[in-house]
C-alpha cells in the first residue's frame, strides 16, 4: 500500500493554513493518491480522470458532510467551502480520462460479460461508452478492483449512495456477476 508517502505529504501540508495555499498546492495530495494524469496506480483508489463534474461534486459533498464515510476523504474535504467543491470537481473533470489496461481482455470472457451489461442496462445511465453524464459517473476503464469494491459496497449497503439508483441495480446481481462486470468495464475499449 502506498499510503505512507501520502500521509507524510498530508502532515506537511496540514502545517500550512489551507487558505494560504495555491490551488496547485491544494490539489497535489489528490494527485498523489489518484494519479497525476487521471489514472490511479494505487489499489482500491479510483482513477478520477475525465470524471463528470456534477458527479464529483456530489461525492465531495457527501465526503464533506460525512454522509459517505471514508476517513482519508472525510479529512481531505473537511472545511471545504461550496466554492471549493465546485472548483475541485471542475478541475478533476479536466484530467485525462483513464487509460484501458495493456491487455485487451480475454475475448470470450468479454463477450459473455457484454451480455450481462446489456441485461442490466448499464449503458442506459452510464452511456453506451460508459463515459457517464451529469450526476452519473464515467466508469469506462476505471480500476477493476475499485469497480468491484464499489458494486459490493452498494450490494451490502455499506455505501449508501446519493440516491438509491445503484442499490437497485445491484440487488439481483450475484458476486460472480459483479466480478465479470468489473472485468468488462475495466477493459472496455
Amino acid at each position: 500500500m502506498r499510503r505512507a508517502p501520502v500521509l507524510a505529504l498530508l502532515l506537511t501540508l496540514s502545517a500550512t493554513p489551507l487558505l494560504a495555499q495555491s490551488f496547485e498546492a491544494r490539489v497535489a495530495p489528490c494527485l498523489a493518491c489518484h494519479g497525476e494524469k487521471g489514472t490511479s496506480e494505487t489499489p482500491d483508489i479510483p482513477s478520477l480522470g475525465g470524471q463528470q463534474a456534477p458527479y464529483t461534486l456530489i461525492q465531495l459533498y457527501l465526503f464533506r458532510e460525512k454522509q459517505r464515510v471514508l476517513d482519508v476523504m472525510n479529512e481531505m474535504t473537511k472545511g471545504f467551502s461550496d466554492d471549493d467543491l465546485r472548483k475541485f470537481s471542475d478541475f478533476i473533470a479536466t484530467l485525462p480520462k483513464p487509460q484501458p489496461p495493456a491487455d485487451a481482455g480475454d475475448p470470450a470472457r468479454m463477450q459473455r460479460a457484454q451480455a450481462l451489461v446489456q441485461q442490466n442496462h448499464c449503458g442506459f445511465c452510464h452511456n453506451p461508452d460508459f463515459s457517464g453524464k451529469e450526476n452519473v459517473p464515467r466508469i469506462a476503464n476505471q480500476r477493476e478492483d475499485y469497480l468491484l469494491k464499489t458494486m459490493r459496497e452498494y450490494k451490502s449497503n455499506t455505501r449508501h449512495g446519493y440516491d438509491s439508483s445503484m442499490a437497485d441495480v445491484v440487488a439481483p446481481l450475484t458476486d460472480a456477476q459483479m466480478v465479470e462486470l468489473a472485468y468488462y468495464i475495466a477493459h472496455v475499449r
Binding site: 459473455r112 450481462l116 441485461q119 445511465c125 438509491s164 439508483s165 441495480v169 439481483p172 446481481l173 456477476q177
Partner: peptide
C-alpha cells in the same frame, strides 16, 4: 427514482 432490479439473470 431509482432504477430497479432486472429479473435474476442466469449465466448469460
Amino acid at each position: 427514482q431509482p432504477p430497479a432490479s432486472a429479473p435474476p439473470a442466469a449465466a448469460p
